[in-house]
Computed example of a mutant assay.
Amino acid sequence: MQVQTLNYPFRNDLQLPAKQVLAAGFFDGLHLGHQNLIKTAVRLARIQKIPVAVLTFDRHPALVYQPESVDSNYQYLTPLNRKLELLEQLGVDTVYIAEFNPIFAHLEPKDFVEQFLMKLHLKALVAGFDWTFGPKTLANMDLLRQLVHRRFEIYEIPSLNFGQRKISSTHIRASLKTGQMAEANLFLGYNYQNEGLVVHGYQMGRQLGFPTANLSMSNEQFIPRIGVYVSRVKVGQTWWPAMTSIGRNITFKRGDNPLTIEANLLDFDQDLYGKTLQIEWLDYLRDEVKFADASALIAQLHQDQENTELYFRK
Rank of each mutant, 00 (worst) to 15 (best):
L301Y: 01
M181V: 05
G134P: 12
H34L: 03
T251K: 11
L259A: 09
L215P: 08
L55Q: 05
K290W: 13
R46Y: 02
V148P: 02
A62D: 11
N219R: 11
I154M: 04
D71F: 03
R151E: 11
D93T: 09
E85T: 06
Y96C: 06
I97D: 04
F57S: 00
D71G: 07
V92H: 06
A263R: 04
Q4W: 14
D293R: 03
R173Y: 10
H121T: 13
T238I: 12
E156Y: 05
K119V: 06
N194S: 08
V199N: 07
F268W: 04
E183I: 15
N219T: 10
G189W: 06
K314R: 13
L144H: 10
K234A: 03
L6P: 03
L86W: 02
A242H: 00
K123T: 01
L63K: 00
Y155C: 01
P258L: 07
S216W: 10
Y190M: 07
A139H: 00
S159Q: 12
R43I: 10
N161P: 06
K253D: 14
F252A: 09
H121N: 14
G29M: 13
K290Q: 13
Y76L: 01
T94S: 15
Q221W: 08
N307I: 08
G274L: 07
D58H: 09
F268T: 14
V198F: 11
I103D: 11
P224S: 04
D58M: 10
M118G: 12
K314D: 01
D111H: 13
L176P: 00
Y273S: 11
T137I: 15
L125W: 02
I154Y: 08
G247T: 11
D269W: 06
R151I: 13
A124N: 06
N7V: 13
H60P: 05
E156H: 00
Q164F: 15
I279V: 15
S218P: 15
N194V: 15
L266A: 07
L87S: 05
I50R: 01
Y284L: 10
G205Q: 03
L297T: 10
V64R: 14
G247M: 06
V113Y: 07
H60E: 00
R254F: 06
V289F: 05
N81Q: 09
E195P: 09
Q2F: 14
S295D: 05
M118Y: 10
L44K: 03
Q207D: 01
V228S: 03
D28T: 07
L197A: 09
D28N: 05
Q75P: 14
P241R: 15
Y284P: 07
V230C: 11
F112W: 12
D287F: 12
F100H: 12
Q2V: 08
F162G: 08
L208P: 02
N185L: 04
I157G: 06
V54Y: 02
G134D: 03
Q203K: 01
T308A: 14
K49A: 04
E306W: 08
L282T: 04
A174I: 11
T137Q: 09
